[in-house]
C-alpha cells in the first residue's frame, strides 16, 4: 500500500496543459506542410514524381463532398456504380488554365518527407503545426498562398447536443493498428480525453457517433455500416488517418474501399499516417466548438 502511494507520488501530474498551452513536439515532427510555390521553377515536377502515394498534383484538383447516402445499408440495393465512377464524383478534376502549381492532398499524404527532401528550391516545408483536421475533403488540399482553414464546429443543432458531451464508438476497419493506438492513447493520463467530456464507449447504442480508422476493408464494410446504423441519430462521423479518408498507402487495392468517404457522411477528417494524437484531439475539440 505504502509503495503504491509512493509510486503515485513520484509520478506526479502528467496531464498536458493543452489547450491552454501548446505541447512541445519533436523538432523532426512532420505536421501541416506549407508550400511556397513562388520559388517553383516552370515545369518542375520533382515533388509530384517523387511522392510515393501520388498526393501531389499539378492540376487544380478540388474534391467536393458527395451527398451522403440516405441510409448506409440501402447502398447495396441501389444501382451499383463502378469504383472509378464513384471516385470521379468524389474527386472531380477541374483544370484551371494558367500556371500549374503543386497541391498536396493531405487525405493522401503520408507525411513521409520525400517531397521536402527532393525539392531543390525549398518550396515544401513540413511545419510543427499539428492542427491538420478539416471538415470538408477539399479543405485538406494545401494550395499555394492560401492558409489552411481549420475545422469549424458542427452546425447549431448537433453542436448544442454534443458540445459538452460526446460518446464515440471506435471502429477499426482494416487499419494497421497505428491509428488505433493513437486514438487509444487519448484515454491516457497525458491527453486525458474524458476531461473534455469526450468518451469512448463500448456499445454503438451508447454512442453519439463513430470514429473510423482504416481504409474500410471489404471484410469490415458490413460490420462498419451496421455499427453506424446502430448509433441513434443525430450522430457524427469522424475519419482518422489517411486510410479512412482515401485508403492511405493501400489506395486502389481491390480488397478495400478507399476510405469511408463514399459510404458515410463524414463530419471530421483527421489526416496523417497515423495522425498525432494532438491532431485528433484538436480536431475533435474544434468540431464541438470548444476551441
Amino acid at each position: 500500500m505504502f509503495n503504491i502511494i509512493k509510486a503515485r507520488w513520484f509520478q506526479g501530474k502528467v496531464t498536458s496543459a493543452y489547450p491552454a498551452k501548446d505541447p512541445v513536439l519533436s523538432d523532426r515532427y512532420r505536421g501541416l506542410p506549407v508550400l511556397d510555390t513562388s520559388k517553383c521553377p516552370p515545369d518542375c515536377r520533382i515533388c509530384q514524381n517523387i511522392c510515393p502515394n501520388q498526393a501531389i498534383s499539378f492540376l487544380t484538383h478540388v474534391p467536393t463532398a458527395t451527398e451522403p447516402p440516405s441510409s448506409a445499408l440501402s447502398k447495396g440495393k441501389k444501382k451499383k456504380k463502378s469504383k472509378e465512377k464513384r471516385a470521379a464524383e468524389v474527386h472531380p478534376k477541374v483544370e484551371i488554365p494558367g500556371v500549374l502549381k503543386p497541391h498536396i492532398d493531405l487525405g493522401k499524404c503520408l507525411f513521409c518527407n520525400e517531397c521536402q527532401n527532393a525539392c531543390p528550391c525549398g518550396c515544401i516545408h513540413y511545419t510543427q503545426n499539428f492542427r491538420v483536421a478539416a471538415r470538408k475533403p477539399q479543405d485538406l488540399v494545401v494550395t499555394d498562398g492560401t492558409s489552411f482553414s481549420l475545422a469549424e464546429s458542427l452546425e447549431k443543432g448537433r453542436k448544442k447536443l454534443f458540445h459538452r458531451s460526446l460518446k464515440l464508438r471506435v471502429v477499426s476497419a482494416g487499419d494497421c493498428n497505428a491509428c488505433n493506438v493513437e486514438v487509444n492513447v487519448l484515454n491516457t493520463l497525458f491527453f486525458d480525453l474524458p476531461r473534455f467530456g469526450i468518451q469512448i464507449v463500448a456499445s454503438p447504442r451508447h454512442a453519439d457517433g463513430v470514429l473510423i480508422t482504416g481504409p474500410v476493408s471489404e471484410n469490415m464494410r458490413e460490420a462498419l455500416l451496421k455499427t453506424y446504423d446502430a448509433v441513434p441519430g443525430p450522430k457524427v462521423v469522424i475519419a482518422v488517418g489517411s486510410c479512412a479518408i482515401t485508403g492511405g498507402p493501400f489506395r486502389d487495392h481491390p480488397e478495400i474501399h478507399n476510405g469511408a468517404m463514399d459510404m458515410l457522411p463524414i463530419d471530421l477528417y483527421v489526416p496523417g499516417c497515423p495522425p498525432h494524437p494532438m491532431s485528433i484531439l484538436d480536431g475533435m475539440l474544434r468540431l464541438l466548438g470548444r476551441l
Binding site: 517523387i50 510515393p52 502515394n53 503520408l110 477499426s172 482494416g174 487499419d175 482504416g214 481504409p215 476493408s217 471489404e218 471484410n219 469490415m220 460490420a223 498507402p249 493501400f250 487495392h253 481491390p254 480488397e255 478495400i256
Partner: peptide, 18 residues
C-alpha cells in the same frame, strides 16, 4: 480476416515507390 487489405498480392511486380 476482417483486416485483409491484399498486401502480398499487390507486391508482385514490385518493389514500388510506396
Amino acid at each position: 480476416g476482417y483486416q485483409h487489405r491484399g498486401i502480398e498480392k499487390k507486391l508482385i511486380g514490385g518493389p514500388y515507390p510506396r
